[in-house]
Write a protein that binds this DNA or RNA. Structure first.
Length: 267
DNA sequence: ATGTCAGCCGGAGGCTGA
C-alpha cells in the first residue's frame, strides 16, 4: 500500500499539477494539506473519476486537509481531540488541520492521520503558543492510538525541521518557529513514544528536503528544508518497505512550494 | 535584492498567511 502526503498550497491553483503527479505516482492513499477550500468547492468528482474515495475537512481561504483513497475509507473523523479529551470543538480546533480515516488493505488495516501543523511564527507570539498546544494535543491523540496496538501513521506538514541537517542553511532558521527547541522537542517526544520517523528510518542522506520557499530563488539554490514527515506506530513500522520524496515535482509548471513524500507499506 | 504565491474582497490592488 502506497501512502503519500502532499501540501498542495491551494487546490484551485494546483489541480493540473496535482492531477499529473497523481497519475504518475498512483498512490493508493494520499493526504493533502492546505487545500484552501471549503468542502463544497473541493473538486471531489474530479478525483472520484480518477478512482479515489474523497473525504475533506476544509475551511474558507486557509488550511484544509483531505484524504483520497482507492480503497474504502472507514470511520472518518475531522478535527483533533484536545489534550483533556473533552471534545473536538474547542477554540484550539477551529482551524481545519486534521483528519483521520481507516484504510483496509489486503493484509492489514491502517489508521491514517493527516495533519497540517500550525506554522507558529512569529516566535513569542500567541501563534507560537498555539503551535505548541497543537503539538500537545497531537501527542495526546498519539497516546490514545498507541494504546490500541494497531498500525497507524501520523503524516503531513509538521512545520518542524527536526535537525540542522534537515535545512540547507540552518542558521537562517535559528529564530523561526519551525526550528525552535520547543517545536523540535515536541517532535522528538512523539518519536520517544515509540513512533518511527519513516524517512530517517530509511535514509541518512543529506540535503533531503520537502519544501523550498517561493522567494529568493530558494529552489534554484536548493535552499530547502525537510518539514513533511511520516511517523509510524510500531505495528505500522513493521510494515514499512520504502519512504521517498518526489523532489522533481518542484521543478514543474506552477508547482506548490512543497513536494510529495510517500511510504510503501506491506499492508 | 522587500527577489513569491494563493485567496479574499470586489471589481483594482491591497491585505493576510506562509
Amino acid at each position: 500500500m502506497k501512502i503519500a502526503s502532499y501540501n498542495i498550497n491551494g487546490i484551485k491553483a494546483r489541480l493540473p499539477a496535482v492531477t499529473d503527479w497523481l497519475e504518475e505516482a498512483a498512490p493508493d492513499v494520499v493526504i493533502f494539506q492546505e487545500i484552501k477550500s471549503i468542502d463544497e468547492n473541493f473538486p471531489r468528482e474530479h478525483f472520484e473519476d480518477m478512482g479515489y474515495n474523497v473525504e475533506t475537512h476544509g475551511q474558507k481561504s486557509f488550511n484544509g486537509v483531505a484524504i483520497l483513497s482507492k480503497l474504502p475509507l472507514e470511520d472518518v473523523t475531522r478535527g483533533l481531540a484536545n489534550a483533556t479529551g473533552t471534545g473536538r470543538d474547542g477554540a484550539d480546533d477551529e482551524e481545519a488541520r486534521y483528519i483521520e480515516a481507516t484504510v483496509v488493505g489486503d493484509h492489514s488495516a491502517v489508521r491514517i492521520c493527516g495533519l497540517y501543523l500550525p506554522n507558529g511564527n512569529p516566535v513569542g507570539d500567541e501563534k507560537f503558543a498555539y503551535k505548541l498546544r497543537w503539538m500537545e494535543r497531537l501527542e495526546a491523540r498519539a497516546k490514545e492510538l498507541l494504546a490500541l496496538e494497531q498500525p497507524f501513521l501520523m503524516a503531513g506538514d509538521y512545520n518542524v525541521i527536526p535537525q540542522a541537517e534537515d535545512a540547507a542553511r540552518p542558521e537562517d532558521w535559528r529564530d523561526d518557529a519551525l526550528f525552535q527547541p520547543e517545536s523540535r522537542g515536541a517532535f522528538w517526544r512523539l518519536q520517544n513514544l515509540g513512533l518511527t520517523e519513516a524517512f530517517r528510518a530509511r535514509s541518512q542522506a543529506p540535503e533531503q528536503y520537502t519544501y523550498w520557499d517561493f522567494q529568493r530563488g530558494a529552489w534554484q539554490r536548493n535552499d530547502g528544508i525537510r518539514i513533511d514527515h511520516f511517523l509510524l506506530s510500531p505495528q505500522c513500522a513493521d510494515l514499512l518497505e520504502d519512504c521517498q520524496i518526489d523532489k522533481d515535482v518542484r521543478a514543474r509548471e506552477k508547482p506548490s512550494d512543497h513536494v510529495p513524500i510517500w511510504v510503501s507499506l506491506a499492508a
